[in-house]
Amino acid sequence: MAYSEKVIEHYTNPRNVGSFAKGEDNVGTGIVGAPECGDVMKLQLKINPANGVIEDAKFKTFGCGSAIASSSYVTELVKGKHVDEAMAIKNTAIVQELNLPPVKIHCSVLAEDAIKAAITDWRKHQEPAVESADAVPARTAQEG
């Protein structure tokens, strides 16, 4: 199967790969997986607690080219967006941007799920009293 040019571009030159330092504040982490292909995706969002705007995003994905491209694109897509706006992102936007074929649509669903998981994780850490929020470390894969 041939990948689209945009998938290849993101795959060979992925944006925002990596993770934020452990214990860094205001980071929400989402780890999601797709059993049918074995892919797993970690998306981290750094969110300004004052206005709920996503200031930075990082990802690490083990999977096929489309999964890597989907998560790479998503890190660019969410930056500067309010969390509510990011929550509303649909996988179809990713499919359209990357010209994903039908067999790779689940990769875009995975990326959409990762955004939701990361924001949900961040919100969970926001709920405790503001004073103690700083003491809550970012969740990491190792703690899972």
């Binding site: 780890i31 999601v32 997986g33 049918e36 074995g38 797993v40 689940h106 799920d113 894969a141 899972g144």
Partner: peptide, 24 residues
């Protein structure tokens, strides 16, 4: 089975990720 990814629990996804990092 492949209708969606909701069947993978967060704990399982995190474990898979940790193993993949180990392999890396």
């Amino acid at each position: 089975l492949a209708d969606n990814n909701k069947e993978v629990s967060p704990a399982l996804a995190e474990m898979v990720f940790a193993v993949q990092e180990q392999l890396d």
